[in-house]
Simulated scan of single mutants.
Amino acid sequence: MLHRRARTATSPKRTHRSRHPYIFKSLVHCGICGRKMQGQHSHGVAYYRCRFPQEYALANKVDHPRNVIMREDVLIKPLDTWLVQGFGPLHRRHTIATLLDQAHTDMPPAAAVTPEGPSVAECDAKLSRYRAALDAGADPAVVAGWIAETQAERQRAAQRHQAPAEEEARTPARLSEDQIITAVEELGDLVDALRDAEPEHKLEVYRSLGLHLSYDPETQTVRASVDLAAHRWDSVRVRGGT
Results as ranks from 00 to 15, higher is better:
E168D: 10
E55P: 10
M1K: 07
N67T: 09
A138P: 04
L203C: 01
T171K: 02
R5N: 09
R66Q: 05
D178L: 12
D135P: 05
G188P: 14
P12L: 00
A97K: 07
F24Q: 13
C50Q: 02
H20L: 11
L187N: 15
P12T: 07
R154G: 02
E186G: 08
I180D: 01
P53Q: 14
H104S: 14
R14L: 09
H3W: 13
Q162P: 02
R49W: 06
T221A: 01
Q54A: 13
H29F: 04
Q40T: 00
P217F: 04
K126T: 10
R156Q: 15
E149V: 15
K202V: 02
D216Q: 09
A229D: 13
S26H: 08
A163I: 12
A144N: 10
P140E: 14
Y215N: 00
V68P: 04
C123D: 03
A133S: 10
T10F: 12
D80R: 04
Y48N: 11
A125W: 06
H94S: 02
P217K: 06
D63C: 06
L213C: 12
A157R: 07
L211V: 03
P172D: 06
V120M: 12
R92I: 01
P78Y: 02
G188V: 12
K77C: 02
P199Y: 14
R51Q: 10
